[in-house]
Amino acid sequence: MVTFTQEQPQDADAIEQLLDRVFGQARCQKTSYRFRDRVAPVAPLCYVAKDGDKVIGTLRYWPVEIGPKGTPALLLGPLAVDETYRGLGLGADLMDVTLAACAAHGHEIIVLVSDLAEFYSKFNFTAAAPTGITMPGEKTDRIYIRGMVPNALAGVEGPVRPFGARFPKARSVKNRSVKRKAA
């Protein structure tokens, strides 16, 4: 019997092994992983699918910010299901369970990077490019967004950035004369 539970610390190794099997070890080189570097996932939103004690699916969420205002958002992913369990709807079940958790915890914006537009559109994700939301280093046609409440995306635009990252402050340039010693 498959169960869906919040990820626990003892699931960490099994999750990493599953992600390596599904995406390969080169997954950590993907642009989206830079947004997860040195930031913990949002624990109450991270779920696993288990068959008995075996982790067969995982879905995590990470804090990010959007635009110069630093609008809080979540970065969905990775979503992975063990190859032997694919086609049973477990990915969709993980989406349903975790999106309900996101709503229950008051999160308003979720962004993701994927080539699976058809799958994520079933969960009301749309292309982010028309909203003016981008992700540095990522193709705009791979970025999707979902507002969890009405008008969540109103006035939100700009690049997605890792949680806690700040835009560089503009520096004023002054005319300075430089004295140099003659050679």
Rank of each mutant, 00 (worst) to 15 (best):
V2K: 05
T5F: 09
T5C: 11
Q8Y: 10
P9D: 01
D11V: 00
A12M: 03
D13V: 15
E16I: 12
L19T: 02
D20H: 14
R21W: 03
V22R: 03
V22D: 03
G24H: 03
G24Y: 01
Q25W: 02
K30G: 08
Y33C: 12
F35R: 00
D37H: 15
V42W: 07
P44H: 00
C46L: 00
V48K: 08
G52V: 13
K54S: 14
K54P: 01
T58F: 14
R60Y: 11
Y61C: 04
Y61G: 05
W62S: 00
V64P: 12
E65H: 06
G67D: 06
P68L: 09
T71E: 14
P72N: 00
A73I: 13
L74Y: 11
L74R: 02
L74Q: 11
P78A: 00
V81K: 05
R86P: 11
G87E: 09
L90V: 07
V97L: 10
V97G: 06
A100G: 13
A100C: 07
A101G: 12
C102D: 05
G106E: 07
I109L: 06
D115T: 15
E118F: 08
F119G: 08
Y120P: 00
F123M: 10
N124P: 00
F125G: 02
A128C: 08
G137Q: 01
E138G: 02
Y144E: 05
G147Q: 12
A152V: 09
L153K: 02
V156S: 04
E157D: 09
P162A: 06
G164S: 07
A165G: 13
R166K: 15
K169G: 05
K169P: 11
K169E: 14
K174M: 11
K174P: 00
R176F: 01
K179A: 09
K181I: 07
A183L: 10
A183D: 12
